[in-house]
């Protein structure tokens, strides 16, 4: 840019902040409306639904709790990076930034395994009520062991609360003619999973965005520190604001999808 833009680094005399910070807050305001619309849709769909599964029963709470811890920690390390840079400790600040970056990656890896698990978990709806393990049921959930055109070999999930004796159940054979619908726990399974994948997916995209920006500031963008220290700190602060917002969205997603 050849034109000198006022308030790029220096705070505006009236508002007391620089351009970037005002912009990032405006951006976050629009993000609030984006996720707000999704939460609003979630409430509407859930209150209109005849039945709605409890996330607790079909999602992995331990993995999500782990991810919550990871994201909260990354938020702390992000703000610590800013504090260290404010005190002039460039190398310490960079270390905290690197930790933030790796925690963000850990979050995505955990998320990947969660998603993968869902895509391998199936539900079968029967045409007529069928006897499975001594109970007459219309639908069962579990994993497919073998699939042919005529039948599937299906390993049902252990009944709820009997996880200790998980080794005892046997795969069963289900004829294709018995099956009304077969679906894995993908977004097409039900509105619960539609909401789950859309919201966590969009949140995941925000995490990826954060990784790109933090990665840039850690790598090539770090040169700015030596040229204009305040400008670099501003950028770290603004990135931090974005990153805390991503954390904040997860803080709501976690109970809304997994716990209730």
């Amino acid at each position: 840019m050849d034109v000198a833009i006022p308030c790029q680094v220096k705070p505006h005399p009236v508002t007391g902040i620089a351009n970037g910070k005002l912009a990032i807050w405006l951006f976050l305001a629009s993000e609030v409306m984006l996720f707000g619309a999704l939460f609003s849709s979630y409430i509407l769909l859930r209150t209109n639904a005849e039945t709605w599964p409890r996330g607790h029963d079909i999602l992995s709470v331990p993995l999500a709790t782990l991810n919550t811890a990871v994201l909260i920690t990354s938020s702390v390390t992000m703000v610590m990076a800013w504090a260290q840079l404010m005190m002039g400790n460039f190398s310490k600040g960079r270390k905290y930034l690197a930790v933030t970056l790796s925690l963000a990656c850990v979050f995505l890896v955990v998320k990947f395994f969660e998603y993968k698990d869902k895509f391998h978990h199936y539900q079968v709806w029967f045409n007529t009520p069928t006897m499975v393990a001594g109970h007459e049921v219309t639908t069962i959930t579990g994993h497919i062991e073998e699939k042919t055109d005529d039948f599937i070999k299906f390993l049902p999930d252990p009944p709820k609360g009997h996880k200790a004796e998980a080794g005892h159940h046997e795969p069963i054979k289900i004829e294709t003619s018995q099956i009304k619908r077969l679906s894995n726990y993908g977004p097409w399974h039900s509105n619960f999973f539609a909401v789950y994948f859309t919201m966590t997916g969009l949140h995941g995209l925000h995490v990826i965005g954060g990784i790109i920006v933090i990665g840039y500031l850690l790598g090539p963008g770090a040169k700015l520190w030596h040229r204009d220290r305040q400008f670099y700190i501003n950028r770290i602060e603004n990135t931090g604001l974005y990153w805390h917002f991503v954390d904040l969205v997860w803080i709501f997603l976690f109970p809304c999808l997994y716990l209730i």
Binding site: A29, S30, E31, M33, A37, A194, F197, T198, L202
Partner: peptide, 25 residues
């Protein structure tokens, strides 16, 4: 533009999911 467009973006994503991922928003 800042505050009214994001809900449509969310709705657009949901409609895209309905079309491409078979969801039923």
């Amino acid at each position: 533009l800042l505050l009214a467009f994001p809900p449509l973006e969310a709705a657009g994503v949901m409609q895209l999911m309905d079309r491409l991922a078979g969801t039923s928003f």
